[in-house]
Amino acid sequence: MSENHLAFIFPAFTSDYTDHPARKMPGFEVRFNDLLLRAARFIDPELAGFNFNGNTFPDDELRTQYLTYIYSCAASFLLRKNSLIPSMNAGYSMGIYAALVDSEAISFETGLALIRTAYHSLRKSLNNASFSMGSLIGLSREDILQLIEQSSLRVEITNQNASHSFVISGYRDDIQLFMKLATAEGALHTRDLAVSIPYHSGYLKEGAMHFADQISPLKIGTPKTPTISLINQMMMTSPEKTREEIVRNLFHPINWFQSMNMMLDQKVKQFIECGPSKGLAKNARFVDGNFLFSTLNAIPFPAVLP
């Protein structure tokens, strides 16, 4: 690892751009609009209608993913332009695609194709059944597993954000029932994540295999910036491992808490959340260590234009 001890963190997806953190970043709007138009030409002409203060496609899961991805790619490009060069990258959940673009393992257009192919492969495999995801704070992994087992719920733990902060995926009815049970058990907070695909769960294995077939022609290289797997906390060190990670990331549980700790073990001292949300920066308060976790609005920029 190089000496700068900096990691770029690429969040999943959000549709909330209120006071988005890159709004004062010099050159951001120019770079974002450039990438937006490239994406509109390449994958979805409707994207050109996006407006930070207007149409953000809040109810469209696929476009929401494209837009967060575009935002993240624009932000990390400008950070590098400003000589902020990461020694490590991490993509949180579907943030993996932007992380791999920044690491030069895939092109911007390949990232778009991966997002589209993953979404359609997974949706098709779910056969119109109703799935969802949820997050909860305040229970332990053992408490959660016990609740799932006691009521035979079709729900899986699919991510751990902190010692008592988890994400679950599964059938929508069972997620909703689980949330009620978790509150009664003492969860301090539960939230329906309002998505229709149960990411990182075994329910997506069939769709992920279809996805793997579909993306076989796409060019995927080795990340030039070390990029951590959220599944096993290892680096993706070859094109094969990177491709495998892209596929497994869809149907295998991830662990953000362990990934943060692994990066801290690797002497990362500063993290920058390269995306429109501040959620991961908030979550970092519950990770022990001597580090700084910044959002884009906290980075002082000299005026550098792309």
Partner: peptide, 11 residues
């Protein structure tokens, strides 16, 4: 104190 004790009280 366990967090879930606080959670139950908070309900």
């Amino acid at each position: 104190i366990e967090l879930k004790v606080i959670g139950k009280y908070a309900v």
